[in-house]
């Protein structure tokens, strides 16, 4: 999936959970969900469930373990999408 489109769709997913408006406005590949966006870690579970729903993929615990940044999330989504093809 196209990088820009992926970032844009991730942005809509994380929006309800962010607690730092500035970091959200500057969201990029290197943005950290917890350190930058100040997302409550319980809500990180919601983000993972939202990603699963939106892309119709399953994120197992091993993949989830790395999902701390936008870059990691993008990599996981692309890997899972490719596996399905």
């Amino acid at each position: 999936m196209d990088k820009e489109a992926l970032i844009a769709s991730l942005k809509t997913i994380v929006k309800p959970y962010i607690q730092d408006e500035n970091a959200f406005n500057n969201l990029n590949e290197n943005t950290d969900f917890i350190a930058d966006l100040k997302i409550n870690s319980a809500n990180l579970v919601d983000i993972i469930l939202d990603v699963e729903d939106m892309y119709d993929i399953e994120i197992d615990n091993d993949a989830m373990e790395k999902m701390l940044t936008v870059k990691a999330a993008m990599k996981i989504i692309n890997t899972k999408l490719n596996e399905q093809q």
Partner: peptide, 17 residues
């Protein structure tokens, strides 16, 4: 706050955690 932020009965929530 937790009740407002998290829907623990959401499908997958409990089993993921």
């Amino acid at each position: 706050q937790a009740a407002a932020e998290s829907n623990w009965q959401r499908k997958g929530f409990v089993t993921k955690i």
